[in-house]
Design a protein around this nucleic acid. Structure first.
Lengths: 220, 220
DNA sequence: TTTTACTGACTGACCGGTCAGTCAGTCTTC
DNA sequence: GAAGACTGACTGACCGGTCAGTCAGTAAAA
């Protein structure tokens, strides 16, 4: 109503300024632009502190456009998690690890984790879940169902088989498969908190863990 | 925080005058009431979502009173961390562990951690640091200097001695003392995120870790 | 009276979400 | 093939609620 007053002129000007006529329209391009921008902003400022105005600006889009693709801020976060992590979970479940010796399995897992998480922006997604999850049960539940539960199941299966083959001295890893993932989690947290004062080499850290629980100076 | 921008100068000057807290007021009772209330609110809602109005109400004081004892919300957080964790660090450093066998040392550490952190509201302080730290470098630095660095130093010393005594098969724990603490950290994170869907018995979890890296079915 | 401790209504910045309006491109019709 | 009608992706000013921090004033103690 009263809104239209100033609009016409300003908008026209803004429009004229835009370099190549936009209008690429089709394709989920927009959606991906927005997701990428959201990841950047959420990583840098945290979910609740990040401003959708900034996400929009970074995506090269107006704020309203975000709401054409996502119901609200929290849904945007959730879709971000799904888009980033589901493929990795699928890759893990598809990996043919079942019949390898446990130590080799563990090394493969470290490689996978470093390559797909630590070395990518996905570590920021994980960090976001760890830091924001407690306040967003919907996100935490989604993450638990779609990621954690699957990972735990895979790890438990591997540990179980290793115990049966006599490659592990006890059933600790069967009862608590989380133990296998703990250093990975800690590496991500550490880097978010303390890298400034004391860098932690995540890969060396995880390999040292393998040396600790499997060989190198120790008979199984 | 971000808010203080425009008013920064004026505010700083005015505040500086009475900054350290209102004189004596003997028995820092007020101060402690406020800290306790802040811990409750911050734990339940997170730092940025917690409202100082609620902290005040819970402490049974007016909002303005908080500002007589703490410069701003972030300082309140920082003081909370100091008040809760410094005593535990002191206790750790005072504990006579140096000459015990490593496995026994590790068990004592688990006991200490369970008794002083997991079983108390202090686990919420740790969780707060882990979740809010990335956005508050001042808090993260304080925590690193006053807590983490000390803990790491103690753990490293213990590991070093254990290696010299031949109680550890390699120097993993000397290079990365964080490995000893990893399950404790993970237990705290897990309980904040997933207890709803899958409870984790923190003590059993950490003891299983000890079984994994030290004996029970394994010769050192 | 003066000083100290405290109060709580108030201010102003901030931001998620909305929606009336725009316009590039496509379709329809002659 | 050109004019007019139509579409819907996109825009951004605006609204309403929230909340950290302020300060004029009150109460109590000294």
């Amino acid at each position: 109503m009263a809104k239209a007053k100033t609009k016409g002129a300003r908008q026209g000007a803004a429009r004229a300024k835009r370099e190549p006529a936009p209008r690429a329209s089709q394709s989920g391009k927009r959606r991906e632009q927005i997701l990428a921008a959201a990841l950047e902003e959420f990583s840098a400022r945290g979910f609740s502190t990040a401003r959708l105005d900034d996400v929009a600006r970074r995506a090269g889009v107006a704020k309203g456009t975000i709401y054409l693709y996502f119901r609200d801020k929290e849904t945007l976060f959730q879709e971000l998690v799904r888009a980033e992590l589901s493929p990795v979970v699928a890759a893990l479940e598809a990996a043919p690890l079942a019949d390898l010796p446990m130590r080799v399995v563990a090394e493969r897992l470290v490689e996978l984790f470093v390559r797909e998480i630590i070395a990518t922006h996905r570590k920021n997604v994980i960090r976001l879940i760890l830091t924001e999850g407690p306040r967003f049960p919907a996100v935490a539940e989604f993450y638990y169902r779609e990621v954690v539960a699957h990972v735990i199941a895979v790890l438990r299966g591997l540990a179980q088989r290793a115990v049966e083959r006599g490659e592990l001295p006890n059933d600790s890893l069967v009862r608590f498969p989380q133990l296998l993932a703990a250093p990975g989690i800690v590496a991500i947290i550490w880097s978010g908190l303390f890298d400034r004062w004391a860098k932690l080499d995540a890969e060396a850290f995880m390999r040292a863990y393998l040396d600790l629980i499997f060989g190198k100076g120790r008979a199984v």
